[in-house]
Design a protein around this nucleic acid. Structure first.
Lengths: 164, 164
DNA sequence: ATTTTACGTCAACCATATTGACATATATTG
DNA sequence: CAATATATGTCAATATGGTTGACGTAAAAT
């Protein structure tokens, strides 16, 4: 398929192949994250808000610490975004019953609505790519991406993905 | 394979499948971009510098305008990063011969060295994922990612990838 | 009773992006 | 040739989203 400079130096080919994989990921992510921008900016929100409501939506009742672990940011950084979302009525916190120090995060109906609207073009993009590539390709896409994720996180992600 | 809540609501399944695809991309990109950080920070550089030298490396002699088009940032934003890289001897500009307004960007040997060092863990990560997933999966990965990229850019990327 | 954990908040700072305005050199066009 | 458009650079102000560090409170764990 790709077949660049093959025959010559297998080490070069390998390096080239890897760099292609890196570049494709960069481009795909670049375009993929540009989708929600229009909707978000109109709302006065940014990508950080999008990521936040996405993961609250996918993990209803997630605690602050868990969310921090997913986003890989500091609590001070999340704080700003989260309090804006709460203030404007898209997210609510519920004190944990078993552990009352915890704050479980939930989207309000407005939050669900916002999340759906914001991610709509993104889902459409993925849907189109899936359709064009076919089921086998999608399977490969999943496999490779999963392999790119830090080993320690994979099982947790698999779990979250199963009953997202 | 994934088979979540199948049988029930095909629309739900579809939505779920798409959200998985989105999430995988998020996680993979998150971990994948964290790789070069250590090396970069030690150098006093950031991810913007990495992206810049990556694309100059892959497109030797690229003009400023072309680079801006790839990175999708403003020239003011690129300017800072680029002048730092030039100042510290990792990048040089050469005036165009055909069009002398243009500045063609090249990595110095030090720049090539830096790029290689910075991207090394990233290439290793991709190599591992490719190895684990197998050739067919890699083909699918490529196909889907290509489909995620804005249609207008695909041919240009394909070209750049061919003789990168 | 003490220590640890989960969360929140204040404050300073940094990297990276933006918009807008303007300047220079060169190419293109009428 | 004159006028205009293009490629690049630069100054300035601003926004977003991240960081570190310090400290506080409530509740859980030891």
């Amino acid at each position: 398929m790709v077949d660049v400079k093959s025959g010559a130096n297998p080490l070069f080919l390998r390096d080239e192949e890897l760099r292609q994989g890196i570049e494709l990921l960069f481009y795909a992510y670049r375009d993929f994250t540009s989708d929600p921008d229009a909707v978000l900016i109109a709302q006065g929100f940014g990508r950080a808000h999008h990521r936040t409501i996405h993961f609250i939506n996918r993990n209803t009742g997630i605690t602050v610490a868990e969310l921090l672990g997913i986003l890989r940011i500091t609590k001070q950084s999340l704080s700003r975004v989260l309090s804006q979302l709460i203030e404007r009525g898209f997210v609510v916190q519920r004190q944990g019953t078993r552990d009352r120090r915890q704050r479980h995060l939930h989207l309000t109906p407005e939050g669900v609505e916002l999340e759906r609207k914001v991610s709509e073009p993104q889902r459409a993009r993925v849907a189109r790519a899936y359709r064009e590539a076919g089921a086998d390709a999608v399977e490969g896409y999943r496999k490779v991406l999963m392999g790119l994720i830090n080993e320690g996180d994979r099982t947790a992600i698999l779990r979250s993905i199963r009953h997202g």
